[in-house]
Design a protein around this nucleic acid. Structure first.
Length: 292
DNA sequence: AACTGGGGCAACCGCATTATC
DNA sequence: CGATAATGCGGTTGCCCCAGT
């Protein structure tokens, strides 16, 4: 079993056995939590402390490597695991804010802006990672149609998602499909396609996934779990209105958005995110819509 | 096996806004 | 009240990974 770093702090625990080629991603905060809460002699984590503390963003340069003079001044580029640990530890003790002071006090050779960005977009414990769910896609499409590129505002309605992540999603997925449709992402044609084709289809898929979940659970879960899932699906149906998707309009989705995920109730929304997770692959989101 | 092009995403930049002195 | 610093936001860039050739 070995560690692989795909990004500076997204680590993969991978089996050497090719028949068990199942990489398990962990964010650095997850690792820290596991390491802190596990016994020092727990086999899985035995030695990982040393590995984590000595790895760099690419697994090539160790913390003992001398830094160049430029790097001694102000560092740029990907964050190292050591820097992340420093930032996390400092914020755990002193709290966040006053980023320039924080950067200096923590001994990080980074700008305050860089520290803030790293914390908000990656290290914060409530950052939600993984594929954008169908429900989240629906929200993003709807909210973007309302507010345009107001990414931080849109992010307020998607608990755990950062504005950067939503922005990247929009640019890499949605704009790509606009390009394939040979129309501008701000054009009426494209907006109509979103509203009358993609969004209704998303609703259909969300409902289908919810139904499938119940079917599966009827077969494989305990009676108690089944009860919970039925409640969950019922709640989802309530949210989605169970109306003809073709009749769905912006107002409908908007009311769904406002009722279910507002910044004011985001704490509860986050805790209920388990039921907010119709996962899709990164390739399957909008790909099958524009061809209809 | 080597190369290449595109996708995905973390991080940076510049500007705007807000806070502090 | 003005100057400066800090923070927030949206646009852009650069790099890594991986599928296709």
């Amino acid at each position: 079993m070995y560690l692989k770093a795909r990004t500076p702090t997204l680590l993969y625990l991978t089996c050497n056995n090719p028949t068990q080629h199942n990489t398990t991603p962990f964010s650095l905060p997850t690792y820290l939590n596991l390491i802190h809460t596990s016994s020092p002699n727990t086999p899985l984590f035995f030695g990982l402390r040393e590995v984590v503390s000595s790895m760099d963003e690419k697994g090539r340069r160790t913390t003992n490597t001398l830094l160049s003079e430029d790097e001694m001044d102000l560092r740029r580029g990907p964050w190292t695991v050591d820097e992340d640990l420093t930032l996390i530890n400092y914020i755990a003790t002193h709290g966040e804010g006053r980023w320039n002071t924080l950067a200096l006090s923590a001994g990080l050779k980074r700008t305050g802006k860089s520290c803030r960005l790293r914390w908000l977009n990656y290290l914060r414990p409530d950052v939600r990672r993984g594929n954008i769910t169908l429900e989240e896609q629906l929200l993003i499409l709807e909210l973007h149609s309302r507010w345009g590129n107001r990414w931080s505002k849109i992010a307020q309605y998607l608990p755990g998602r950062t504005d950067n992540e939503i922005k990247n999603y929009w640019r890499t997925r949605v704009q790509k499909h606009a390009k394939q449709l040979k129309c501008d992402v701000n054009s009426k044609q494209f907006k109509d396609t979103m509203r009358y084709l993609w969004m209704p289809r998303l609703v259909e898929r969300i409902q289908a996934a919810a139904t499938a979940s119940v079917t599966t659970n009827k077969a494989y879960t305990s009676e108690n779990n089944l009860k919970n899932n039925e409640i969950e699906v019922h709640n989802l149906k309530d949210k989605m209105g169970l109306i003809d998707p073709s009749a769905m309009n912006s107002d409908f989705v908007g009311s769904y958005v406002m009722q279910s995920h507002t910044p004011e109730n985001s704490s509860t929304a986050l805790s209920s995110s388990d039921s907010f997770g119709t996962q899709v692959s990164t390739k399957s989101d909008l790909t099958d819509y524009y061809s209809v």
